[in-house]
Write a protein that binds this DNA or RNA. Structure first.
Lengths: 239, 239
DNA sequence: TAATATATTAACCAAAGATTAACAACAACA
DNA sequence: TGTTGTTGTTAATCTTTGGTTAATATATTA
């Protein structure tokens, strides 16, 4: 079964390198749009719908990080890979902060790039399969509107949730009564999985438990080493 | 969060190259077992539980393809990567025929290998996640949910199982009324087979027996020197 | 820019889980 | 029957993971 080719936005100021890379990706069945600086890159980004962006970091007028930030404002989903001559840790961190999905130091092996591209696109594909457009949830006597970030208990005044609180509760609700793996929340909400983000998540779990206290039948249980589970007891089936 | 390191079986007859590659993989957080020919490779394969095999094709006594076929007989799942000096099409085909997952021509870029390894392991992981591996078992009057790690007796409050308790009981249940070899549980659950892990397993068998006590018809029997057997007596067939 | 809301970090303690050690009980078998 | 290796049991110890608090940092808004 032949899928339609994935679209890649390639922003690279070196015209030779850019052309070679474009050709290479093209013969590997990607549809490549080449922009030669950040300005042009952003213009082309707005005009089309790409599956992946590959950005050179060092470019005149507008560098890769700035461009990435603009792209992220428009689109929270599209994967971004940075190409850079630098391999400094702070630069890498800066890249991930603006939401990069991967990093590649020049000069690099084209096969490695290809591998990364495929891995990233596949990952995004499986993510969008799991993540739901749904934004309203009934959780016991609570109602969550994750678009407005409101949590309402019965008919009381809604509580405003912070973005992280909201995302986390939504993810728990999507897995109601089932395991919500730690790792899933960390990689999807925190976009990183280490000791501190894990600690941070625990802090948020505590906050959510506080919010959910008024309903005795709603609980967030821990499954040691695995994740959390939002349980709703004595559930009355509606019809 | 630190996962336990993935185990790789590396079979390579060139001692220098083998050692270098082993070191390289080790510093990249893999646990590598090196075998210097096909014979030794197969012996080591049987003794442990690997996440990946990397086989050199041209080796004395037993070549990579033959070894791969033997490995496949034992294990249909484990990913295999071939290393070869050849790049002939028929050889590649021969490799895929015995179930290779990937192919790499010497000399190769170590980063490429690393990438391939990661891609393959991740793919396998997501496969086993989506493949609806059985996780619910009826054991006499008990019900085991090995995903949530719950053991429920009749309609009583579920008992929480620890990861090891859970895995072990699941493995017993998978062999219900049949022998569950010691060695199997040790290599699969403890990923190591020595005096202490064996002792540890006995401790867990004791714990499980305690949990299962309420149902007279459920018992874990020992088969001296072989393993254990989960028996369920007076089984009433349901329809 | 100050004020406010949100998020991260750090330290510390508690809980859960796993291993180890020591010894008793048992099976296999010469 | 005694000897050897295996299994059963308990309790102590060690390790990892989770919960909580508060200080600090970062982002957002007035």
């Amino acid at each position: 079964m032949e899928e339609t080719h994935k679209k890649i936005l390639l922003v690279e100021d070196d015209p030779n390198f850019g052309a070679v890379l474009k050709d290479y990706l093209s013969i590997n069945d990607f549809e490549v749009t080449l922009a030669k600086n950040g300005m042009e890159g952003f213009e082309k980004f707005k005009k089309d719908n790409f599956d992946l962006c590959i950005l050179d970091v060092m470019m005149p007028y507008k560098d890769g990080y700035t461009l990435a930030r603009e792209i992220r404002e428009k689109n929270k989903e599209v994967p971004i890979i940075f190409l850079t001559a630098k391999s400094m840790k702070e630069d890498v961190l800066k890249g991930y902060k603006v939401g990069a999905d991967d990093y590649l130091n020049k000069p690099f092996d084209s096969e490695v790039l290809l591998m990364k591209i495929k891995a990233i696109i596949q990952r995004k594909a499986s993510e969008t399969k799991t993540d739901n457009a749904k934004f309203e949830f009934q959780i016991g006597r609570f109602h969550l509107n994750s678009k407005l970030r409101f949590l309402t208990f019965d008919n009381e005044e809604p509580i405003k949730l912070s973005p992280k609180e909201n995302e986390l509760l939504k993810m728990l609700a999507l897995h109601e009564n089932d395991l919500m793996p730690r790792e899933l929340a960390l990689t999807k909400i925190w976009r990183d999985d280490n000791y501190f983000t894990s600690r941070s998540m625990d802090v948020y779990i505590a906050k959510l438990r506080k919010y959910l206290k008024p309903d005795e039948d709603v609980e967030i249980l821990n499954i040691h080493g695995e994740g959390f589970r939002l349980v709703v007891k004595n559930k009355v089936e509606e019809k």
